[in-house]
Computed example of a mutant assay.
Amino acid sequence: MASSSRRRIPEFELVMLGGGGVGKSAITIQFMQSRFEVNWDPTIEDTYRKTAVVDRVEAMLAITDTAGQEEYRLMRPGYLRSAQGFLLVYDITSRQSFNEVNKFHEEILQTKDLATYPAVVLLGNKVDLADRRAVRTSEGEELARRFKCQFMECSAKFRENIDEAFHSVVRAVRKYNHKSILDRTADLLAGEDGPERPHYGEEEHKGGCCLIS
């Protein structure tokens, strides 16, 4: 008789965010299928599922690849509310795409109603086009400090830092969830009359940043 106590793999809802043409779909396809998709129609919404082993622990990744174009902005709050982690992508050859990252990050904070949200990886794509670079690595690092999130650069074409980016956001979600559980447990132990503890990400409402991991 089959066992009724099969171990459940924890699921992580992740969302790809960034302007149109920055390579969100190419990054996702490279992670999912280990291939570089050259000709890809603009995305409205695609969803993918993949089991990954992160730090020797299995995780089910449910990835939503979203449209970056402004006309699809009203669709995004639904994805953002349920998502646990975000890959915030820009194109290192496009100053405009780097500037647009701020509005996507602000949408995350507004939807989550938090001052900071650490389960984010800021990702500068297309390092294979370094001769056309318009955004310095140091600028990406500085923006990640303001966002209080992790940062790396990648190449969807050559699969550079692709697995690392997804694994990093899973780690960030795990850390965030663990810290939230500890805070709630401490509140329960303190009792109703105990001192109120700030929850992770809510210490400063709408201000401040975190270090790059």
Rank of each mutant, 00 (worst) to 15 (best):
Q84M: 15
A67W: 11
R76C: 08
S94K: 08
A26Q: 01
T66P: 14
A62T: 13
Q84A: 04
I63Q: 03
K112H: 10
E58A: 12
N102E: 11
L114F: 06
Y117F: 10
T64V: 11
P77I: 10
S34E: 08
A67M: 11
Y72V: 04
Q30K: 01
D113L: 10
M32L: 06
A52R: 14
A26S: 09
F104N: 08
E107T: 08
F86W: 08
R132I: 02
E106S: 14
E71L: 05
N99R: 12
Y117S: 09
R73M: 13
N125F: 10
F86S: 10
V121C: 02
T43W: 14
G18Q: 09
E107P: 01
K24C: 05
S97T: 02
S97Q: 04
Y90L: 04
R132K: 14
D41S: 15
E107H: 07
N99D: 15
G68Q: 04
A26H: 06
D41W: 06
V53I: 12
Y48C: 05
V120P: 00
V89E: 01
V127G: 01
R76T: 15
T116Q: 13
A62H: 12
E106Y: 15
E45S: 06
P118R: 13
M75R: 14
G85A: 11
T47D: 10
A134E: 08
K103F: 03
D41I: 07
N102C: 05
G124K: 02
G68K: 01
T93G: 03
Y48F: 09
V135A: 02
A62G: 13
N39K: 14
L122F: 03
L74W: 08
V120M: 01
N39I: 12
F98V: 05
T93E: 03
S97Y: 09
T64L: 10
T47F: 14
V57A: 14
V89C: 07
V101F: 03
D128C: 03
N39H: 13
D131R: 03
R133K: 07
L114K: 09
D128I: 01
Y117Q: 01
R95S: 15
Q96N: 15
G85K: 04
E106V: 09
E37H: 06
R95W: 08
R136G: 10
R76D: 13
D55T: 10
L80G: 00
N99I: 11
V22S: 03
Q84K: 10
V57H: 13
Y72N: 05
F36W: 04
L80M: 11
S82C: 15
Y117N: 01
G19L: 07
L61H: 02
Q96P: 07
Y90G: 05
M60D: 07
I44P: 15
H105I: 01
V22N: 01
T51N: 09
I108A: 00
K50N: 05
G23W: 00
F36V: 06
I108T: 03
T66M: 09
R133N: 08
D91M: 02
V121L: 00
S94M: 09
M32Q: 07
T111H: 00
E45P: 13
N102M: 12
L123A: 09
L109M: 02
S82A: 14
T51K: 08
T64G: 02
N99A: 05
S82D: 15
R49N: 15
V57G: 05
T111C: 03
W40L: 08
L109C: 09
Y48T: 08
Q69M: 06
Y79L: 13
G23V: 00
Q110S: 13
E71T: 04
V89G: 03
D113K: 14
N39F: 11
L80E: 00
I108D: 03
L88P: 00
